[in-house]
Design a binder for these strands. Structure first.
Length: 590
RNA sequence: GCGCCCGUAGCUCAACCGGAUAGAGCACCCGCCUUCUAAGCGGGUGGUUGCAGGUUCGAGUCCUGCCGGGCGCGCCA
């Protein structure tokens, strides 16, 4: 069953059609003036322009057509021609009953499900995740869940960055530092026996430390750089010694990444790396060559992607470097090909830093003539950067990059402290308390991020991120826990739910908010903007909290109590669904 | 230099195809716990939406210019 907004929209659109106005103008939205109405249509104003008639006149004609609709308690014209609709209490009650009985809490599914890949997270070998990965991870995770919930077949792919020049740099750096490792690598490369156990001494901390040094030296020292490139090229043809060491890099990195992702409630269906498409690259290059797309330029092989009418000339896609190596764009193109073969997606969402907008535009333009994708199928969904309170990209007080794991730990510490301060969960067993602290910490981090529109940059302020009052993740958890506690008590006292009767303003507001769920989901889906869903989740919690404060439940008369228990049940289910789509889990108690 | 993004309350952010009185949270002030979890609820203070034009019955939203900030501009990803 559709929500009230859409059901009423159909009625208003029919009324528009009946008076000869374009029916699509009869769109109904939630009212901007809750004091005046529940829903509104602004269509008469737009119709006035196309029909050359007075907007109030049109509104009057539309209102006449709507007269007698039993769902409407009042239909009024306001201002220059707004049509204000107030829904009958009985209609609200019936809608609440429907939502309460629905496992999806009033959410619809898309009519034409698609196959969708969400490429997010952006972890790289040798680099622990830092705060910059937070956005990509949690926005991507939310989009994945949202698309899946709406009925699409969705896979999340971490697209592990494990196959570029940085690997050659690191292999060289590690070998320079450790003669033991170097000896084993050289031996294996030469086809002699070598014990890879020597590689176990290499840790993620080593890689993290060596990488920036090596990258800097690679820029300054051309011999060093050339050597790293040769190693990269050798790795990419799987020279066994380099490859064995690389596997160690990949393993130590993945363990740490999985820990961080797990702590954030982020899971991937595919953990594919750039290296997984390595075998496609040689045939792909041959195919691109055969199609006449490759051009030799400055010793490299490129695809030109310039188009007529470009405001700015896009640089070409580098397919084969002058060293013969595959580049970032090469593996990205091969990944598009791989995904087409493996999954044939209708849509691929790249949830990646907006700094790479040019890069993706270039890769996409190369993919179209290659026949690997069609326009509109590949979409780069960028997000803003996290800045420090000084407006510059976030750094720790020491000037370094804050590791994601450290941030999660800081948030968890704060959650524990605040739980103690508030006297929450202290009588619970220690493992449950820890679980609650973890959920509170993750809710705080995720909601603080997801409530912002993904496209804009925002200020990262740990104190604000781990604040538990006001418009925060913990506020949402707190409301959910209060409902759960209430429902447990109701059950213990033998009370059951019953048909909803709407009487109090707080009850009206709660039902109208519940009704707005599907519209919020649809908008978040269309705009790929989880903040729309986050906003709905917050409004729902707020509406419940007001209801909870204004309407006694357990002490109410039996019929009222049953009605309010139904409302509480529906609110909890929708709230938990919305939280889950944001990647946030609520504890049972705290 | 060229291109893309951004500029909204003291701070951090919203604002549904261009619509009514631009909304939240934080901070600040005033109320509400012997009754379902006060991480809560109610009320209040706070705005020339960077500036100047333009289009429109109507502009935070669209167009132009300017000012300020961020990012990017082929062999790193």
């Amino acid at each position: 069953m559709s929500d009230l907004r859409r059901a009423l929209g159909e009625a208003v659109q029919a009324a528009f059609a009946a008076i000869g106005a374009p029916p699509e103008l009869g769109r109904v939205t939630a009212s901007d003036r809750p004091d005046l109405a529940d829903f509104q249509s602004n269509g008469a104003l737009a119709a006035a322009k196309t029909l050359g008639r007075n907007p109030r006149e049109i509104a009057t004609a539309v209102v006449e057509k709507l007269a007698g609709d039993p769902r409407l308690a009042a239909v009024e014209i306001a201002g220059p021609g707004f049509i204000n609709l107030k829904v009958a209490d009985a209609t609200l009650g019936a809608r609440a009953d429907t939502i309460a009985a629905d496992a999806r809490a009033g959410a619809e599914t898309v009519t034409e499900p698609r196959r969708v890949i969400v490429d997010y997270g952006g972890p790289n070998v040798a680099k622990p995740m830092h705060v910059g990965h937070l956005r990509a991870s949690i926005i991507g995770e939310s989009l994945k869940r949202l698309y899946r919930f709406r009925g699409d077949t969705v896979v999340g792919d971490a697209h592990f960055g494990d196959w570029g020049y940085q690997m050659g740099l690191l292999i060289g750096a590690v070998m320079d530092e450790s003669p033991a490792v170097a000896a084993v690598v050289d031996a294996i490369n030469a086809g002699q026996p070598g014990d890879v156990a020597a590689f176990n001494a290499v840790t993620l901390a080593d890689l993290d430390r060596l990488y920036p040094e090596a990258a800097a030296r690679g820029k300054a020292d051309t011999d060093y750089r050339d050597r790293a490139r040769r190693i990269t090229a050798a790795l990419q043809v799987k020279q066994p010694g380099y490859y064995a060491l690389w596997e160690r890099f990949r393993t130590v990195t993945k363990v740490a990444l999985e820990r961080d992702f797990h702590a954030l409630g982020v899971d991937f269906d595919w953990w594919k790396g750039e290296s997984d498409v390595e075998h496609l690259i040689a045939p792909m290059v041959a195919e691109l060559d055969a199609k006449g797309l490759l051009v030799d330029d400055q010793g490299a092989r490129i695809i030109r992607v310039v188009r007529e009418g470009d405001k700015r000339e896009l640089p070409p896609l580098l397919v084969v470097s002058s060293e013969g190596s595959a580049m970032y764009g090469t593996t990205d193109l091969a990944t598009i090909l791989d995904r087409k073969r493996e999954f044939d997606p209708h849509l691929v969402i790249y949830c990646v830093s907006p700094r790479q907008a040019h890069h993706f535009a270039t890769v996409y333009r190369a993919a179209y003539p290659a026949g690997y994708a069609v326009a509109g199928q590949l979409e780069h969904v960028g997000f803003g950067t996290m800045n420090g309170t000084d407006g510059k990209p976030f750094k720790t007080r020491e000037g370094g990059v804050l590791k994601l794991n450290d941030m999660i730990e800081m948030s968890r510490d704060k959650a524990r402290a605040r739980l103690h301060e508030a006297g929450l969960g202290e009588d619970l067993p220690a493992p449950e308390f820890e679980d609650i602290a973890g959920k509170v910490a993750v809710a705080a981090l995720k909601f603080a991020d997801l409530q912002n529109f993904r496209g804009t940059s925002y200020v990262f302020d740990l104190d604000r991120f781990t604040s538990f009052e006001g418009k925060t993740g913990p506020y949402l958890l707190y409301q959910a826990v209060r409902v759960k506690s209430l429902l447990r008590r109701a059950e213990a006292e033998g009370h059951t739910t019953g048909p909803v009767t709407v009487a109090e303003p707080a009850e009206r507001d709660l039902v109208l908010t519940l009704d707005a769920f599907d519209a919020a989901l649809a908008e978040a889906y269309d705009k790929k903007a989880p903040n729309v869903l986050a906003e709905h989740a917050y409004r729902l919690s707020q509406a419940f909290s007001k209801f909870y404060a204004a309407c006694p439940i357990l002490q109410a008369a039996p019929a009222v109590r049953a009605s309010r228990l139904t409302l509480a049940t529906a609110a909890l289910r929708q709230s938990e669904l919305a939280l889950d789509l944001l990647g946030i889990a609520a504890p049972d108690r705290m």
